[in-house]
Amino acid sequence: MLTRANLFGALVFVAVAISALFLPPWLVSLATIAFANALVVLGLVILWRTGLVPFGQALFYAIGAYAVALIGRYTPIRDVFVVVLAGAVAAGVVAYVIGFLLARYREIFFAMLSLAMSMILYGILVKSEALGSTDGFHVEAGSFLGWRPQGALRNLALFWLVLGFCAIAAWVVGVYFRSVAGSMAIPMRDNEIRVEFLGLSVDRLVHLKLVISGVLAGIGGALAALAVQHVDPQMAYWTTSGGFVFVTVLAGAGSVAAAFVGSLAFELVRSIAVALLPGAWQLILGSALLLTILFLPEGLGSLYSRLRRKPAAPKEQPGGPS
């Protein structure tokens, strides 16, 4: 699977990793959160391409985050690789279980059912005194295979950790997009009956998408928990889910790279907006989304493909770079 696009993607990741050494610490921290969230967005893109919009993806995000926090609290395990993978597995299992129900629904019913699931978790977390209720609780600083960096070095190490997970996720999702199952996104949106009568179960295809997107959101949440060193029920709240949908619209579902670019752009715009208009930054963010929808209905990702589109570009490789 060593295509030119993969090689290009790998080079970009390495370049970004190296550039972190020369960037101001605030930007590295911002990018850490942005890329952790980009994994959630990447999961949304997988569903979005089939026309499914989950308004409760924060469910998996919060499960990944709380898994890391709980391991830190109740076990001696501190290794970041182990705890992030535990977060991924926890979110994947939840996605698999609720997928049996959720995969039978489409459109607004899918969106609302997903929202309901996430709000159930929010309700449970808020009522759990042992988990700090609405305040949440502290997340233990992890160790990197025994190494425990401090201060600025820890921030760098975390950034590289996030970047590593992003690179793997981007590659896996790229392979998935080019697979038979991954290529069914548009066919499923077009005509479920035909997909069924060709011999593939549409419900199972949706179920698989849910599990992949759940795992990605779980990894994103786990990494965010490590970066922020705190978890609270807000991570499962519907506004968090809405934020991810917002970034997905901003990024567009055209390519894997769009999720990362979109997420970074979102965090940057938000930081700038908060600095400029501390009381009304949502106004700027809303305007940014409005302009995107008006002028780039297929998202920021489409800017790239618009610039390099050749007259007879092959259409059946929606994976794009990385």
Partner: peptide, 13 residues
């Protein structure tokens, strides 16, 4: 094959 997991690991092209 019938399995969506097998189909997720088989390239379309």
């Amino acid at each position: 094959k019938d399995s969506v997991i097998a189909q997720a690991m088989t390239p379309l092209d």
